[in-house]
Design a protein around this nucleic acid. Structure first.
Lengths: 191, 191
DNA sequence: AAAGAATGTCTAGCACTGCTAGGATCGGCT
DNA sequence: AGCCGATCCTAGCAGTGCTAGACATTCTTT
């Protein structure tokens, strides 16, 4: 009785993850507009309504994918920061890693920052991976700077702007390196 | 014969504009997700298919609204730049005007930068108002700076990032002024 | 002025979306 | 064995963007 119950829950958790990865793979392969509940259900080999027994709706599924994305991004940014030889170059490495993430995983990035999701930002119940990403920027700045958070916000905003404007062709795709250089130079001088 | 033809074309142009303003008003009042072809048609007091005799599809309608938005934004930015007492403060005024536009007309801003449209950016056939907005940033920078365009791109990106991240609650809504200050300080120092 | 051509508009419908109520089916428990 | 509850699916709703074909209405030509 308890054994079967555990197996049930295990299978259910498995299926939960299967839905998330299916949504992510489908989005990365054909874009989010191709991710419909029907195709998703077909891919998981269940009928549509089971999706709604796991998630409150499509937005929640996108949110789950986005959360996975934040976990990965936090890893990427952390690796970039720690691999920098000196603190002065850490910020540049993190910025480059950020843009790299955005351009190499556009669908994931969309889920995290553009599509409507049910994720809470800048509040008490902000998921940890989300906060971790932000902190990677903060940790690149000198601890005696009491406006570190403000700096991090502006840097993050600039990177996000660069990512989305170049992705949608509103600024030329080339010249990302120069933009990063300019950004970190401005921060270094402005602080 | 020729007179009636002219009248026809005049009425057609009127209806064309009526569709655009109806879409804009509806979006500003209830958000873009409420702008459907049916509601739009009802509001213009014509049936759905007439929309498609004016525009290639919904994206084209959004694009037309966005184009109007760029015209207005170019005006706002130009006024802000010219009203600045000295060139050094012009950039700050333009940045503030940009963020003001984004927060006061969120629906219009969405059409211009977030929703899928058929507008061409950074190419030969980029509409003039679009280019004009970009140039307002460029014209705030010293003419002897041969990397003005790069600077403008980064400034614009940062502003766009600030606008969209604060709109979606990903960074706190307060503190916009400080962010602008930091941005223009960084540019001034980095250049 | 009457017949034909062309233009404009609308009704009805397609294929699709996210989402859900209700019934069928299968498991474990008494 | 028989019940009962959890699980899952079929079928359908209301809505989306978009379009083919019928219907007028207007203009042109005889």
């Amino acid at each position: 009785m308890s054994a079967t119950r555990e197996r049930r829950e295990r299978e259910r958790a498995q299926r939960h993850q299967m839905i998330i990865t299916a949504a992510r793979e489908l989005a990365e392969a054909e874009g989010w507009e191709a991710v419909t509940t029907r195709r998703l259900a077909e891919r998981v080999e269940y009928s549509q309504p089971v999706l709604y027994s796991h998630f409150n709706g499509k937005d929640a599924i996108v949110g789950a994918v986005a959360l996975d994305g934040f976990v990965e991004m936090a890893g990427d940014l952390g690796r970039a920061r720690r691999s920098a030889p000196e603190p002065a170059r850490a910020l540049r490495a993190v910025c480059a890693a950020y843009l790299r993430f955005a351009t190499e995983r556009p669908a994931l990035y969309q889920a995290m920052f553009i599509l409507p999701t049910n994720l809470k930002f800048a509040s008490v119940d902000t998921p940890a991976p989300l906060r971790a990403c932000f902190d990677e920027f903060v940790n690149c700045l000198r601890p005696d700077n009491e406006r570190r958070e403000l700096f991090a916000e502006v840097i993050w905003s600039a990177l996000h702007g660069i990512a989305v404007l170049s992705e949608s062709g509103r600024i030329p795709p080339a010249g990302q390196e120069e933009r990063i250089d300019l950004l970190v130079a401005g921060v270094a001088a402005g602080g």
